[in-house]
Design a protein around this nucleic acid. Structure first.
Length: 277
DNA sequence: AGTATCTCCTGCGTGC
DNA sequence: TGCACGCAGGAGATAC
């Protein structure tokens, strides 16, 4: 399941093959993603140059001549770089091919179709899906004071808060679990009861765990593959996520599992005490 | 404004 | 072996 590290890994993988290239053909086999793909997308993109590929939250942004192509991988989306000449077998869920003039094809595959491919020619700062997003986790804007301020007016659990893209982007379920474990904070702790010191620790751990995951090439649980088809290796570094019943790597207690706001939540009851309800 | 719930979809694991 | 079923999950939409 692609979270920020997986999206960033994908960006780094596809960028060298696409930046500066010109789109020569777009094949859309299935328009039905989370939102329907623009019926005119193929003709809009035809002949445009991909100038740069950036990332905002979990959106990949392909800056073209007259606008930006936004790609979200959803739950099961995946981008691969293929050699156009190879004529690779088109899988059941290979919904879109973007063929460029340097011999490469960008193929979007997404079994669950929770992802999105959207076109916009308006400034990104005004684009609906991006304008209300919180800071990127690696920027200085995401710091202890900021998080603590955000916590003050909210009674939701700290795990829910951290996963809220309006607070900070990129901390999905896996990494929220991991960062809370490394911070020694119980996932159900009410946000407005966190101390500044806890916020400081949590901010540092979110940055740390996301950075380590990017360095490992992302987390491959079921279906994530990097753009070259290889899995990421961060799953081997997970302390609590998916490890219900295992020994806590810090203290040896048993890792617990429950649902917090509909999401699978893992923690160590010794290392992550609930300080207040 | 903040929070909880619903929703999209397919593949996989489980139990019979 | 096969089927029915439940579940996972990012994040926008919707209802309080």
């Amino acid at each position: 399941m692609p979270e920020l590290p997986e999206v960033e890994t994908t960006r780094q993988g596809i960028r060298p093959h696409l930046e500066g290239s010109k789109i020569s053909q777009v094949i859309i086999r299935n328009h039905s993603l989370r939102w329907p793909i623009d019926a005119d997308l193929a003709s809009i993109l035809d002949g445009q140059t991909i100038h740069s590929i950036q990332r905002r939250a979990k959106y990949l942004l392909l800056h073209c001549d007259t606008g930006v192509l936004l790609i979200h991988l959803g739950m099961s989306g995946n981008l691969r770089i293929l050699n156009t000449a190879d004529n690779d077998e088109v899988g059941k869920h290979a919904h879109v091919d973007i063929i460029v003039d340097n011999g490469h094809t960008l193929r979007y595959t997404d079994p669950r179709r929770f992802g999105a491919i959207l076109w916009t020619s308006e400034p990104l700062s005004e684009y609906k899906l991006l304008k209300d997003l919180g800071p990127e986790p690696f920027t200085d804007a995401f710091n202890a004071d900021y998080l603590w301020q955000q916590c003050q007016t909210r009674r939701c659990s700290i795990k829910t808060l951290v996963m809220n893209g309006k607070i900070v982007v990129g901390a999905g379920n896996i990494y929220a679990n991991e960062a809370l474990f490394l911070s020694g904070i119980h996932p159900s702790t009410r946000a407005n009861t966190l101390t500044l010191q806890q916020c400081n620790q949590l901010v540092r751990m979110i940055k740390t765990v996301l950075k380590q995951a990017i360095e490992a090439g992302g987390t491959t649980l079921k279906d994530f593959r990097k753009s070259d088809g290889q899995p990421g290796y961060f799953a081997q570094q997970l302390n609590v996520y998916g490890r219900e019943g295992d020994d806590c790597p810090k203290c040896g207690s048993i890792i617990q599992h429950y649902k917090e706001a509909q999401r699978a939540t893992f923690f160590c009851s010794q290392c992550q005490k609930l300080t207040s309800a």
